[in-house]
Design a binder for these strands. Structure first.
Lengths: 143, 143
DNA sequence: CGTATACTGGATTTGAAGCTCTCTTGATCT
DNA sequence: AGATCAAGAGAGCTTCAAATCCAGTATACG
């Protein structure tokens, strides 16, 4: 349901949102997110074209968010790399009608609910919940 | 989010649910659903192995549902051909913890809501809504 | 029986997504 | 200016889902 690419983009964006002091290089992001470096670089390019991040070249360069994490939704990130395709017209061959059948209404409404959930969550929401914990997945509680 | 395969399976199952008089052949189903015949045959095999349909060979053969449409959910159909994979553990490389991070909690809860929606809808629900209309997607309102 | 019908199963091809490699462009620091 | 660091961009490889093809097997009916 969620492509690898979208997953990777989200991990990278969350890492950036969590890192407030200056940019992060592709290499640093790849380490944090466990995403293959070369592939991540491509994804970062896409995020750049969507103007969600900017890349600064040269020493001390790297990627930074273009907006504060509160103002970037999950949906924007996903859309930038792998858009959710809502079902707006008949997926069958029948060209001469507009309404969706019950089946495709259901499927589209499932898509809609996902889209809705993604709209309501910002990068900041996810960083805040993490608290002091740094890794993307929280380690076991210490005792 | 929903694979072609799952879409095709659903179309075929809805067609079967809508057809109460005897079985439908792969060929007939392919016509109704606009799915490539050879590929649909493979999908029907999967649905057969999941015991959602039975195939009757020979003349006047074809596929029939094994249960009344009210008792078959969308989820069962989707699961038979292309299961929804819930996120139950850390998708990153970190093996030594159980909890999901905020990101993956969100993603999994999106999956959960889709799963829920699919559980609550049966094939019968979709056939009933169609009413007299035969094609999977309803034609334009006549006036 | 024999034949036409229709599902079953395996092998193969195609195409898109995932991933790598390499070269180029731009920025920083001696 | 020259060296180095890091993003940008294009070409190619790999893997897997989607789709096709072909031979095999079971069933109904005359």
């Amino acid at each position: 349901m969620i492509s690898h690419t979208a997953e990777y983009a989200l991990r990278a964006m969350v890492s950036l949102a969590d890192h407030t002091h200056g940019p992060l290089t592709s290499q640093q992001l790849a380490d944090r997110t466990q995403v293959p470096l070369g592939y991540l670089a491509k994804i970062m390019q896409q995020l750049g074209r969507a103007e969600l991040v900017v890349g600064q070249r040269g020493p001390h360069g790297g990627f930074s968010l273009t907006r504060p994490p509160e103002q970037i939704t999950i949906l924007e990130v996903v859309t930038a790399v792998d858009p959710i395709r809502r079902i707006t017209r008949c997926p069958l061959g029948l060209p001469d009608h507009q309404d969706l059948c019950p089946l495709h209404r259901r499927l589209d409404s499932a898509l809609a609910s996902v889209e809705q959930a993604f709209t309501e969550t910002s990068l900041a929401d996810m960083v805040e919940e993490t608290g002091v914990v740094k890794p993307l997945c929280s380690p076991p509680p210490k005792r």
